[in-house]
Computed example of a mutant assay.
Amino acid sequence: MAAKMQFDLVSPERRLASMAVDAVQIPAADGDMTAMADHAPLITTLRPGVLRVDGAESGAETAYFITGGFADVAGPAITVLAEQAMPASEVTADVMDGFISQARAAHDKLRDGDAGQPGLDAAAKLVADLEMAKSQLVG
């Protein structure tokens, strides 16, 4: 039996999860990663994406959409501090289209500005990350 670790997911609006789990798949800024019990300690920034939790009390995989934030992995515990988060079951195409529309508007504003505008690549990546999350959550 795999060792359990404590998982907590909080956003400014609410605590979404606090449970013992086997593993957490994290959309880290530098690539997806899976944290398990006894993982090396680390703090990483998060990109928009789907955070998946395996081995919760219900036995089923639980998924959440997050817009970014930080994950603190410390051996027997992982805490995710999300900018915005919601259970995947609450995500609709309209919700995702709203996030994508805001990101595209910010990207277009930067693109139409002076050449070499800082943040243009990051804005384009944000749009791409949100589109990928939408395809994973609502097709």
Rank of each mutant, 00 (worst) to 15 (best):
A105G: 15
F65W: 00
T67W: 06
T67G: 01
A123Y: 10
V73R: 00
T44V: 10
V95W: 02
R111D: 15
F7Q: 04
Q84R: 08
P118S: 07
A20H: 08
E61N: 04
A133R: 01
L137S: 02
D97P: 03
D38P: 06
V127T: 07
S135E: 08
P12C: 04
V50Q: 01
A17K: 03
D22G: 02
L126D: 00
M36R: 11
H107A: 13
V73N: 01
E61P: 01
V73F: 00
F99V: 05
A23N: 07
A2R: 03
P118I: 00
T79N: 14
L9P: 00
D121C: 13
S89R: 15
D38M: 13
Q136R: 06
D22I: 02
A122P: 11
G68S: 02
A74R: 13
K109L: 15
A128F: 01
A29G: 08
V10Y: 08
I78T: 05
A71Q: 03
I100N: 13
L81V: 13
P87I: 06
E57N: 11
L120G: 06
I100V: 12
M132E: 12
A85P: 00
R15E: 04
R15L: 07
A28M: 11
V95F: 05
L110D: 07
M36A: 12
V91H: 02
K134Y: 04
M36P: 04
R47L: 09
K4I: 00
E13L: 05
P48Q: 01
F70I: 13
K4M: 07
G98R: 10
D97T: 11
V91I: 12
V80I: 14
A37P: 02
P118C: 09
R47I: 06
F70P: 10
S89T: 14
M5N: 04
A63Y: 06
D114C: 10
F65V: 03
D112H: 12
L137V: 02
S89G: 15
A93W: 15
D38W: 13
A37T: 05
L110E: 10
M86Q: 06
A123I: 15
I100M: 14
A40S: 10
A82C: 06
M5G: 04
H39M: 04
G55A: 08
S58T: 11
G59D: 08
A93C: 14
A29R: 11
Q84M: 09
A56C: 12
D72F: 10
S135I: 14
D129M: 03
A3T: 12
L46E: 01
V53L: 06
Q84T: 09
A93R: 15
E13I: 07
T67S: 05
Q84A: 08
R52T: 12
G75S: 13
M36Q: 10
A88K: 07
A124G: 09
G139Y: 12
D129K: 03
F65Q: 01
R14K: 07
G139S: 14
D114M: 13
G55Y: 01
G116E: 15
E13G: 02
G49K: 03
A122Q: 13
Q25G: 11
F99N: 07
G49C: 06
V10N: 07
L51V: 02
A82G: 03
P41L: 05
L81E: 11
E83L: 06
A29Y: 02
A23L: 09
D8K: 11
G119M: 12
T92S: 14
A71R: 01
G98H: 12
T67P: 00
L51P: 00
I78V: 10
D121H: 12
S18K: 04
G139L: 14
A2W: 00
G55C: 05
